[in-house]
Deep mutational scan, measured.
Amino acid sequence: MTFKLIINGKTLKGETTTEAVDAATAEKVLKQYANDNGIDGEWTYDDATKTFTVTE
Protein backbone atom coordinates (compact mmCIF):
# COMPACT_ATOMS: atom_id res chain seq x y z
CA MET A 1 0.00 0.00 0.00
CA THR A 2 1.10 3.55 -0.63
CA PHE A 3 1.01 6.04 2.23
CA LYS A 4 1.50 9.79 1.83
CA LEU A 5 3.05 12.34 4.18
CA ILE A 6 2.08 16.00 3.89
CA ILE A 7 4.65 18.28 5.52
CA ASN A 8 3.52 21.67 6.83
CA GLY A 9 6.80 22.71 8.39
CA LYS A 10 8.19 26.10 9.30
CA THR A 11 11.08 25.69 6.86
CA LEU A 12 10.02 22.68 4.79
CA LYS A 13 6.72 22.14 3.01
CA GLY A 14 5.78 19.39 0.61
CA GLU A 15 4.90 15.74 0.49
CA THR A 16 6.43 12.33 0.07
CA THR A 17 5.16 8.77 -0.20
CA THR A 18 6.26 5.37 1.00
CA GLU A 19 5.23 1.79 0.35
CA ALA A 20 4.40 -0.22 3.47
CA VAL A 21 2.39 -3.25 4.54
CA ASP A 22 0.35 -1.27 7.08
CA ALA A 23 -0.12 2.18 8.62
CA ALA A 24 2.05 1.43 11.65
CA THR A 25 5.01 0.52 9.45
CA ALA A 26 4.46 3.57 7.25
CA GLU A 27 4.27 5.80 10.32
CA LYS A 28 7.68 4.59 11.53
CA VAL A 29 9.27 5.22 8.12
CA LEU A 30 7.66 8.63 7.65
CA LYS A 31 8.45 9.79 11.20
CA GLN A 32 12.08 8.82 10.63
CA TYR A 33 12.04 10.79 7.36
CA ALA A 34 10.62 13.83 9.17
CA ASN A 35 13.14 13.48 11.99
CA ASP A 36 16.03 13.21 9.51
CA ASN A 37 14.84 16.48 7.96
CA GLY A 38 14.49 18.31 11.29
CA ILE A 39 10.69 18.33 11.29
CA ASP A 40 8.99 18.03 14.67
CA GLY A 41 5.31 18.74 15.00
CA GLU A 42 1.80 17.46 15.54
CA TRP A 43 0.90 14.32 13.58
CA THR A 44 -2.49 13.28 12.23
CA TYR A 45 -3.54 10.32 10.09
CA ASP A 46 -6.50 9.89 7.75
CA ASP A 47 -7.16 6.20 7.15
CA ALA A 48 -9.57 6.85 4.27
CA THR A 49 -6.84 8.51 2.19
CA LYS A 50 -3.85 6.77 3.84
CA THR A 51 -2.36 10.20 4.50
CA PHE A 52 -0.25 11.38 7.41
CA THR A 53 0.14 15.11 8.05
CA VAL A 54 2.77 16.74 10.24
CA THR A 55 2.38 20.40 11.18
CA GLU A 56 5.06 22.40 12.97
Rank of each mutant, 00 (worst) to 15 (best):
V54F: 03
K50W: 06
G41E: 01
E15Q: 11
E19W: 15
V21A: 14
T44I: 09
G9R: 05
F52H: 01
E27W: 14
D46V: 05
E42C: 10
A48Y: 10
T49R: 06
F3H: 04
K4C: 07
T16D: 03
N35T: 14
K28Q: 13
I7Q: 02
K10W: 10
T18P: 01
I7G: 02
N37P: 01
T49P: 02
V54A: 03
A23P: 09
E19N: 13
T18S: 04
K13F: 10
K4H: 12
E27H: 10
T25R: 07
V21F: 14
A26R: 00
E56P: 10
Y33T: 03
A26Q: 00
G41F: 03
A26P: 00
T55A: 06
A20Q: 10
T53C: 06
D36N: 10
F52N: 00
N35I: 15
T25Q: 13
A24K: 12
K31C: 05
T25A: 13
N35M: 15
T18G: 02
K13Y: 11
D46M: 04
K50V: 03
K28Y: 09
T17M: 11
T16Q: 09
T55Y: 08
E15F: 14
L30C: 04
N37T: 07
I39T: 03
T16K: 12
W43C: 02
N35A: 15
Y45E: 00
D22K: 03
E15I: 15
V29Y: 13
K13G: 06
I6M: 06
E15H: 11
L12K: 12
E19S: 11
W43M: 04
T2Q: 11
N35Q: 15
T51P: 00
D22H: 04
T2K: 12
V29Q: 13
N8S: 07
V54W: 02
E42Q: 11
I39N: 02
G38F: 07
A26D: 00
V54S: 02
G14P: 07
G41I: 02
T17P: 02
E42T: 13
D22V: 03
N35S: 14
K31T: 05
T53L: 05
D22Q: 03
A34Y: 02
L12T: 12
T55N: 08
Y33E: 03
A34C: 13
G9M: 14
F52I: 01
D40F: 14
D22T: 05
L12Q: 11
E42H: 12
V29M: 12
I39P: 01
F3S: 01
D46N: 10
A20Y: 02
V21C: 12
T49V: 06
A34G: 03
Q32L: 07
V29K: 10
G38P: 01
K4Y: 14
G14K: 13
A48P: 06
G14S: 13
T49Q: 07
T55W: 12
A23E: 07
G41H: 01
D47K: 08
T49L: 08
T51R: 03
D22Y: 03
